[in-house]
Amino acid sequence: MKNIFSRRVNHPELEDRELVALAKDDAEAFGELYARYVKKMYSYIFHRTGNTQDAEDLTAKVFIRAYSHIGNYVDRGAPFQAWLYRIAHNLVANWHRDQARRKIIALDDYVAHSLQSEAPERLAEDVEERDQLMEAVRRLPEERQQLLLLKFIEQLSNAEIGEIMGRTEGAIKSLYHRTLLALRDDMQRTPEAGQQRRLDGTEV
């Protein structure tokens, strides 16, 4: 009965908070949230996993989990995307734990995606440099990887990153500084030496 008399809702005009409230009973409202964030989630997960197949699998899991738990979502003032990023972060962390051969993640997909518009003469040199940098990024502890992806890919502010990672804005600035120093030091070492240790100091 309520569906007959309820007025038509124009979902694209609504804010996230309103859509979340509707999505508990309205699949189309969740569809609008999906449309707003699916690319962000995919991009984040792709850089954390390094391949299309796992990025698609984990992106699907993020939204399936979000849809099945949207009824339990409590608005505590943080943006909805912070909740999605936390789900994605947890799934990626589990994925990394499940990977028996984490060190041989193929970077081919990454290169194919990011170098399509480069000039051919610089391609080989750039590929090598970018591979080294991406490998160095992937040797970072998980929270530092997350920080870099949110800052550079999503271009979020420190306050927004803090909401997602559960830290203060000052803590994010400090972590960013330490991350850059660690990354620079790692890149200055020989590649062989760099591959022997993680940037948090633990031996691989």
């Binding site: 699916v38 995919y42 991009s43 992106t59 990011s114 890919i153 990354l183």
Partner: peptide, 23 residues
């Protein structure tokens, strides 16, 4: 980092089929 860490787009077919599966 600014050059390397760029957004990556998912396949449109993937986006559409996942939406259908979920919604």
């Amino acid at each position: 980092l600014h050059v390397v860490l760029t957004p990556v787009e998912p396949r449109p077919e993937f986006v559409e089929s996942l939406r259908t599966d979920i919604i």
